[in-house]
Design a protein around this nucleic acid. Structure first.
Lengths: 166, 166
DNA sequence: AATTTACGTCAGCCTTGTTGACTTTCCAAG
DNA sequence: CTTGGAAAGTCAACAAGGCTGACGTAAATT
């Protein structure tokens, strides 16, 4: 009932019950979201933290450690442990900064790009299936709500990574 | 350009670039999603795992341990550690099953409900703000995509918790 | 009577987060 | 030129919260 009333003045979508459903949807969907990469990584010596580092280095090649710390929201000690193994295993290269030699510019090696591709292929496949099933209008709404849900600082990070958007 | 073309036959929303944006939106939004309860719980002896247990016990009063295991997707040892502290601290009550005395029916005590309210108020507040900012149509799309992203088993769990939906 | 189920628990391990302290390197301002 | 502070790396210790394996008990089922 009142299903057609989505014109804007209806506030039925703001009931506690609707909000709780949204909360649970986030919980269950996030599980699916991470499931495929987790499966790939289990058995390797890597975990979700490695995936995140690889993702954002791929996304912004040459990014610095500080920059990555800001994006991932962890301590440098925590990130360093992850980065250390990736560098030692030859998946990530840390080049001394040209202008500021204190900085390290991070890049994926060929081997690192191979794993990145494997992980993001899996994650994109699920995303693609969900998008296709839901349709373009739903996808638009999906992105709008997620963006509104972010902390302002995270929203900045998210948006600043969007050069080249159509 | 081509912005208006969201009519259904356009597949622009399925490009790798669009998918990657969706992936990052999930990552950043989930951080926001958990930020407020995390803040409340830090300092107490509890964490996100306790929050999840409290949420679903509140959601399905009288639920059994096995049932909760299925929803949360963790091992009984992991859940037990969390449940143990909640019971010892008087937030959760475990009543011996009436029909089947092997089962434990879990309920929140008054004290448990107090914490649950505090946590879910905070989480709902963010959700409400996001929903309000995005509008009813976006919320509809948000839920549709999230549901499509779940593993089939999780989708069952999600939907089976929806009695009483309008 | 034997087996299965539901739950609890002990012990040990791993990942990934934390704090605190310290060093090295380097840029930039005094 | 010296010095203060930022950037990065590292060591140590710890905690939360996952995991496996093994074992025990009570109750239900066969």
């Amino acid at each position: 009932m009142a299903e057609g009333n989505t014109g804007g003045e209806s506030l039925l979508f703001l009931t506690d019950e609707q909000l709780r459903k949204g909360i649970e949807a986030m919980f269950f969907a996030y599980r699916g979201f991470t499931a495929d990469p987790d499966r790939i990584l289990e058995g390797m010596d890597y975990g979700r933290a490695h995936h995140r580092a690889i993702h954002f280095i791929h996304r912004s090649p040459g990014t610095t450690v500080s920059n990555l710390l800001g994006i991932l929201g962890v301590t440098k000690q925590s990130l360093n442990r992850v980065l250390r193994t990736l560098i030692d295993d030859g998946l990530v290269e840390a080049r001394v900064g040209k202008d500021d030699k204190r900085e390290r510019n991070l890049h994926l090696t060929a081997k690192g790009q191979e794993l990145e591709r494997q992980l993001s292929d899996a994650q994109r496949a699920r995303m693609r299936a969900a998008y296709r099933a839901a349709g373009p209008a739903a996808v638009q709404g999906f992105r709008t709500v997620l963006e509104a849900m972010m902390d302002p600082e995270m929203r900045r990070q998210y948006q600043s990574l969007r050069e080249g958007e159509k």
